[in-house]
Nucleic acid binder design. Structure first.
Lengths: 246, 246
DNA sequence: AATAATAATCGGTAATACCACTTTGTATTT
DNA sequence: AAATACAAAGTGGTATTACCGATTATTATT
């Protein structure tokens, strides 16, 4: 089945041409009629591809004039790869601060919701979803929409990177008990309204995940990869951010 | 001039219908031919609108069957408003951690680039751009793509919110000297490789901006708005996050 | 009642025509 | 010769029609 629609092919060809700098910002695309002939498709198909490009903000359409490469096309195409270590470290720092912030603004309803996610996780139904909800509820508890968005964008980043979804997802599921215990510690700190303890508990949670990522890599990967990762272990440690004086 | 293309109208009507829960996830849209008749446009126009919806991942198209509301449509539509205070507080916490992280990984090239932005700012050419570059260079200095993305997503969030671009942009420009001085302090701390001082300097930078946002609001707005914001001043303070013990 | 053949419906693509707008080149005017 | 006005060509915007393949619902068959 599948059979992607034709315009996606055209879309990808033009998009990759932009990405590879064959088409520069500000440059005008050939007319729809020319493109139709070039790709051996009809004009409506070309139009659909252009609309897809426009929605993705890679091009700008000017009536009567033509289609032009957007000036932000380069930055948008430039969605760099993010490895699991980078992502986890970033989540640690950001969600650590969010936990500290939430400690003083979380209410009883949200505390109850957090407790519920622990139950959900224990009963083995949708472990992954319960994990995600836990972190999102804490973000919501800051009552700051920008922080909520920040957490969501990191989660989105995770799902966009196909290479790390499996790895880090496995960690949550395989080490369910550890995850639950750490979540419980975070919840306890939040209940106390203690910003520092909340941050610390959150850091411990992610720190364990990072170390586990290394361990899994080491046990699975070849020797050379193991060495490479071991060298990086220091780089991605977050210990230095957890304990600090004024 | 202008005259947005027709399909954007259709797109917005359907998108808002999804947002307002008139259309639920999994539900099937009327056929393209029906929609064309309903909206009094041609089928190609409907198709273009649907493609825009598909690119935005609000719907999924299944050949021979129909167009269905995506299950993640609700979360995607749910781009809440973010006020300047929320955004600035969030940037403070995240970029504070990023500065602390960058302190140990920044190299000479990046330090030079930061110094250059200070010069650019002083010479009055593109103050806003120099400000943005300053913060992005620091993010890059972490050498962590996830952190770079996080900062960029916050900047994107800022430009999406039409209401706060003016306000916070003005602050950067009107108080150029203060901004430059604070940037200089951050740069100094980074040069020393001192994570805590870097974080602290970054927090001071944003803290001043938050207070200034309040002052501007107070001087401009009506009395009732002033009272409302004064009540929030405590909520958005980041003092509690700057100074902390283990 | 279960299954297979069939008809209706849906999206996918193509071809064509006409409109409004922009651009550009030419011709007119100064 | 330069500036302006205008006309023609080109471009995207929209509509119409047609036909195809895939899916779904219906019907006929077993």
């Amino acid at each position: 089945m599948s059979s992607k629609r034709l315009f996606w092919d055209i879309y990808e060809k033009i998009a990759s041409a932009i990405q590879s700098k064959e088409l520069v910002a500000g440059q005008r695309l050939p007319s729809e009629r020319e493109l139709a002939e070039t790709f051996n498709v009809s004009r409506p198909t070309i139009r659909e591809a252009i609309i897809a490009l426009e929605v993705k903000e890679l091009v700008e359409v000017k009536t009567g004039s033509g289609v032009y490469i957007s000036n932000k096309a380069n930055t948008l195409c430039h969605t760099k790869q993010v490895n699991p270590f980078e992502l986890t470290q970033t989540r640690a720092l950001i969600e650590g601060e969010i936990a500290a912030c939430a400690a003083s603004s979380i209410n009883k309803t949200e505390l109850d919701q957090l407790a519920q996610t622990l139950v959900d996780m224990q009963t083995n139904s949708k472990v992954r979803q319960a994990d995600r909800e836990f972190h999102q509820i804490i973000a919501s508890a800051t009552h700051n929409n920008a922080m909520i968005q920040a957490v969501e964008s990191l989660w989105k980043l995770r799902s966009e990177q196909t290479n790390n979804t499996n790895e880090s997802d496995d960690i949550c599921i395989n080490e369910k008990q550890k995850t639950i215990e750490e979540h419980k510690n975070i919840l306890t700190a939040l209940k106390l309204g203690d910003a520092n303890k909340s941050r610390q508990a959150m850091h411990l949670h992610f720190n364990r995940m990072i170390n586990q990522l290394f361990d899994e890599s080491e046990s699975k990967a070849f020797e050379e990869i193991r060495l490479k990762h071991s060298a990086k272990r220091g780089k991605y440690s977050i210990d230095q951010f957890t304990n600090r004086s004024v």
